[in-house]
């Protein structure tokens, strides 16, 4: 029972970090209709900036630097896509993000090399105990920070001018443009926000029990794509639910790998993708997606 509780807690922690990534993915999709395949490398850029600056400025400021760098990179990518490809279809823009991802990942991998880099986070390998249930402090911190940030984003959506414009733009771009909403700025803000969220996620993906930030951190972040797809891509609430499903299935696959050994080792890494394929076979629009996706 203790083991089950620990596994579920780990799953929730992982899911809440995935939610930061998946939410950004969905925000970009709602604003621009683009699936940002460069999200993993933007996350890596944010994480790498934290590792490169924490010794000079301390951890909190380093996280801010990372968020700024990733946000700026996402904003630049948006500007490139919007300017270079005026009027191009979203699938072409999506392929463009793959090209950018290739460039960014190659550049970052050359910087990071084969090592694990520390983000200088304050939690180290400390463990908190609740009764018999042990959970690392970094994971608790991940849950708390994610909940706060996600709550903040939802509040922005709900009450800020930007959130209103975002929702209007997502509902009907032409009408929004007619109403005087500056689509370009609304979109730019969406991309920057998504980049910054990814940078924060990078810090927790690199925290204990992971040995630090390395080349594969960006790839681990790819598991947030299934989370967003599971939720239906255009639903922020769906992205959260999808993230929890992905986080839990990944943690359960890791926690009970002896029992699941018939399915091969390393199942935890593919669990998110297996869950996605199984769900899509039954519900092609995801769990919360609007029906319109497959109209006609």
């Amino acid at each position: 029972m203790t083991k089950f509780a620990e596994t579920v807690l780990n799953g929730l922690a992982l899911g809440s970090v995935y939610a930061l990534i998946a939410l950004g993915f969905v925000v970009i999709f709602k604003a621009s209709g683009v699936m940002n395949f460069a999200h993993g490398s933007i996350l890596l850029l944010g994480g790498w900036t934290v590792t490169a600056t924490h010794q000079a400025v301390g951890f909190p400021l380093a996280v801010l630097c990372g968020a700024l760098a990733a946000g700026a990179a996402a904003g630049l990518l948006h500007a490139l896509a919007a300017r270079g490809l005026r009027g191009a279809e979203a699938p072409v823009l999506t392929i463009l993000t793959i090209g950018v991802d290739l460039l960014l990942v190659t550049a970052l991998n050359a910087r990071i090399g084969p090592d694990f880099l520390s983000t200088g986070d304050p939690w180290g390998d400390a463990v908190a105990r609740f009764g018999g249930v042990a959970v690392t402090q970094s994971r608790l911190a991940g849950i708390v920070v994610s909940v706060l940030l996600i709550g903040g984003v939802f509040a922005l959506f709900r009450w800020s001018r930007w959130g209103l414009s975002m929702r209007a733009a997502a509902a009907d771009q032409e009408a929004a443009a007619l109403m005087g909403i500056r689509l370009h700025r609304v979109r730019l803000a969406a991309w920057c926000l998504a980049g910054a969220l990814a940078a924060v996620a990078a810090v927790f993906l690199a925290a204990f029990p992971a040995p630090g930030l390395d080349r594969t951190t960006g790839q681990i972040a790819l598991a947030a794509f299934p989370a967003a797809i599971l939720g239906g891509m255009d639903s922020a609430v769906g992205a959260l639910a999808g993230s929890l499903v992905i986080g839990l299935s990944s943690a359960l696959a890791a926690g009970y790998q002896e029992q699941l050994s018939g399915l091969g080792t390393g199942l935890a890494d593919v669990a998110p993708y297996l869950v996605m394929v199984l769900v899509l076979l039954v519900r092609p629009n995801g769990l919360f997606g609007s029906k319109e996706l497959s109209r006609v």
Partner: peptide
């Protein structure tokens, strides 16, 4: 359609790696 299939097929690469290794 389109990009949605892109993400869904991303899964195949990882599942394929798992199968090849196991």
């Amino acid at each position: 359609r389109g990009m949605y299939l892109g993400v869904a097929t991303l899964a195949l690469v990882f599942i394929g790696q798992h199968v090849m290794l196991n």
